[in-house]
Nucleic acid binder design. Structure first.
Lengths: 230, 230
DNA sequence: CAGTATCCCTTATGATACTG
DNA sequence: CAGTATCATAAGGGATACTG
């Protein structure tokens, strides 16, 4: 649906469908499990809803995404074709991890961090009842500096306003430190030891937090020899 | 070098560098072996030289491509980082082969076909001396309908004007038939048998042509179950 | 060979507000 | 929840001609 390249090369034909701005990130979100318009928006905060809508329509038209109504809801999901993009997107992400250098401050978005942290929680490790973990991001304007993740074995939610429940533990750190953990640049253990991130709360919970809030899927990508990057 | 996504996700960081129009195709050309500006242009015929120049500069700036002067020549080559995109581009091409459907007539470009055929020739199979194979593309305006590929064990060239040497054999067929062979949709053998493509010339040469002009690199990609595509 | 120089113009996209 | 509506701006990019 992008402009045509007038090439029969399959790479060109693939890129006609995929290389417009945001397109592959929309697919990434779908492959990560988002199914509703507003969930997708949360994973793509800087994308205007108009554009998201347009991209979704394009992807449906090109057979990469399926749109279904489920009662009053609309459900987007990757088709077989979309699902087959997963390995390519994983390679691109691994490449990005290895070769795109140091993140700029503008890349550090607390909304996205919280959204991804909550999405990766291993619910099997969450005790029954409700547990609330507060995140204090120290170097971010108030409105984006406090978050609560509400965990139950059935469900994990993010809130940007105090959910009311008692807070079981609080994680405090700079946005960059938290993102570094997500990226696998350093482990929870290292960050806690260096006190770039701290956790307050009962030891039982403190110990579980690194297990709940696992690093992102690319954290394990081996980094290139530093000589090559410089 | 594209506009930033303001995301720390490595897929987003990769796409900032790669998802602008033409970028990945430039890299594809470099990975296919093109090293000079005008070679790249031949593999990217609809790209304006201004834009190619811009993209090359961007890729150099982002460390994906190296630019070197060699005497009066300028040589572009993939860096380690660029080389590491090969698997991703191969997956995208394989995906394109499986999921982008039937080619439109506008995608069938004889220049590109000849350029790719010549580039894939296995020179080890070319006899010493000079062999000229003429291609008559039956359904294309005269100016783009006749081509000559000049083969020696050292070098293979494409000409769009009669190179003067004696022609050893002539391949005749529609553009689509020839592209179908390139894509692996059908084999030389099948196309010859069905007479959608014909070769005239001494049997010795006729037999070698399918070996010289091998299908493209994606020809072997398994196609999806037809039910799924429809 | 390896690019620049122009020129025009569409289109993409960001931002925001609003609706069924 | 799931989008549309609107608007203004900036880019992006196509075509062509030209240069060291």
């Amino acid at each position: 649906m992008g402009s045509p390249y007038h090439q029969f090369c399959p790479v060109a034909k693939a890129m006609e469908l995929l290389d417009e701005r945001w397109t592959l990130l929309v697919i990434r979100e779908l492959l990560a499990g988002s199914r509703h318009f507003n969930d997708l928006r949360r994973g793509l905060p800087r994308m205007s809803p108009t554009l998201l809508s347009k991209r979704l329509n394009q992807l449906v038209a090109s057979g990469v995404v399926e749109r279904r109504r489920d009662g009053r809801e609309v459900v987007y999901s990757p088709t077989r074709s979309g699902e087959e993009l997963r390995p390519a997107i994983e390679l691109l992400g691994a490449w990005g991890m290895r070769w795109t250098g140091v993140l700029g401050d503008v890349d550090l978005d607390p909304k996205l961090l919280m959204w991804d942290l909550h999405r990766n929680v291993d619910r099997a490790l969450v005790p029954s009842g409700t547990t609330v973990v507060q995140f204090d991001v120290t170097d971010v304007a108030a409105r984006q500096g406090q978050w609560w993740i509400v965990l139950t074995p059935e469900e994990v939610d993010v809130c940007d306003a105090d959910p009311g429940h008692e807070v079981s533990a609080t994680v405090t750190g700079s946005l960059r430190s938290l993102v570094e953990i997500w990226r696998g640049d350093r482990t929870w253990i290292d960050a806690l030891r260096a006190e770039s991130v701290t956790i307050t709360g009962p030891e039982r919970i403190r110990r579980l937090i690194p297990a709940w809030f696992r690093p992102g899927n690319f954290a394990a990508v081996p980094r290139p020899d530093p000589d090559l990057v410089a």
